[in-house]
């Protein structure tokens, strides 16, 4: 039961955290009217995933491995794009907050319902089909034992619970701190999703180097342990990481984080800096 619990937790965690942050953002910027759009995206992703999962599990048609990888891989890449957009959407809002330009702030928030729906949709839908197939498999096992289904459901519930805790924590933060830290957090999450997508493409044979490992710490961080599960669930950390995965992670993280930090924390150098002390004087 514990193993099934951990799978459910891992599959649901990242989506729950991203949605938790999105909801906190919408609430903090006084746009509660966008909440139905968030839930519509989440609900649609869940319904479609469960329906397709059920059709593929119980119906006469199955899904080949290649198609499943291709769906997972392409949705991951789409999710990276949307999360990146969400990060800079927040960063832009934070900059307007700093300069107290209320009309600029309103314009930044005016991203519209459709964008919010899409963000929630892809955050949940990315791993939705895989999770649904896992859930239906545990539902099918109930004629021999109910503990797999119970474990899987409790795992997903725990993921949603953690997403709710993040929401509760985030709404209490000072607005500027909220934008700065959730943004950085999302940059690391998105880098992980990209690295995960790269690994999917390596497994599907689209990218080479599946067995060229940059590091392998599986002995220290077992993928079946609770901390391995949390690291995998939140940051898509894989204990055996390939060079391609590492390269994708760094290539996304470094420029995105740099631009984000400049946007959020960077202050234009208006005041003249103090003149540098001449070399001879100090000695």
């Amino acid at each position: 039961m514990l193993a099934n619990f951990l799978i459910g937790l891992r599959e649901g965690l990242e989506a729950a955290l991203v949605v938790g942050i999105l909801v906190a953002y919408v609430v903090k910027t006084h746009r509660r009217d966008l909440l139905p759009a968030v839930w519509a995206g989440v609900g649609f992703a869940v319904a479609v995933s469960l329906a397709f999962g059920a059709a593929l599990t119980f119906g006469p048609q199955g899904l080949s491995f290649e198609a499943q990888e291709a769906i997972g891989g392409s949705l991951s890449i789409a999710a990276v794009g949307l999360v990146t957009w969400m990060i800079f959407w927040m960063a832009r809002t934070a900059r307007f907050l700093k300069s107290n330009l209320q009309h600029g702030l309103d314009a930044a928030i005016e991203a519209g319902k459709r964008a919010v729906v899409m963000m929630a949709l892809f955050a949940v839908g990315r791993e939705g089909l895989e999770t649904a197939l896992f859930l239906w498999a545990s539902a099918k096992a109930t004629d021999t034992s109910t503990s797999p289904l119970l474990g899987a459901t409790l795992g997903l519930a725990a993921a949603i619970g953690l997403g709710w805790l993040v929401y509760r924590g985030a709404v209490r933060l000072d607005l500027r701190v909220f934008f700065a830290w959730t943004g950085l957090f999302l940059v690391v999450v998105a880098a992980g999703v990209l690295s995960y997508g790269a690994h999917d493409l390596q497994e599907a044979g689209v990218l080479p180097g599946l067995h060229a490992l940059a590091f392998d710490v599986s002995a220290a961080i077992a993928p079946t342990s609770w901390y391995g599960t949390l690291l995998k669930g939140v940051f898509n950390f894989s204990p055996a990481t390939t060079w391609v995965q590492l390269a994708a992670w760094v290539a996304y993280l470094v420029p995105t984080a740099t631009v984000f930090i400049r946007t959020t924390w960077g202050t234009p150098a208006r005041a003249p800096r103090p003149a540098p002390v001449p070399a001879g004087v100090r000695a």
Binding site: M1, A3, N4, I7, E11, G62, L63, S64, F65, E66, E130, L133, F134, A137, S138, K140, A141, T144, S145, S147, P148, G151, A152, E203, A204, G205, L210, H211
Partner: peptide, 22 residues
């Protein structure tokens, strides 16, 4: 023994999942 042709993951204890391949 290196290239993945097909795989099924997330197999928790007690579960049965089908791997379908051409």
């Amino acid at each position: 023994g290196l290239r993945v042709v097909a795989e099924v993951e997330n197999l928790g204890p007690g579960l049965t999942r089908d791997l379908v391949m051409q």
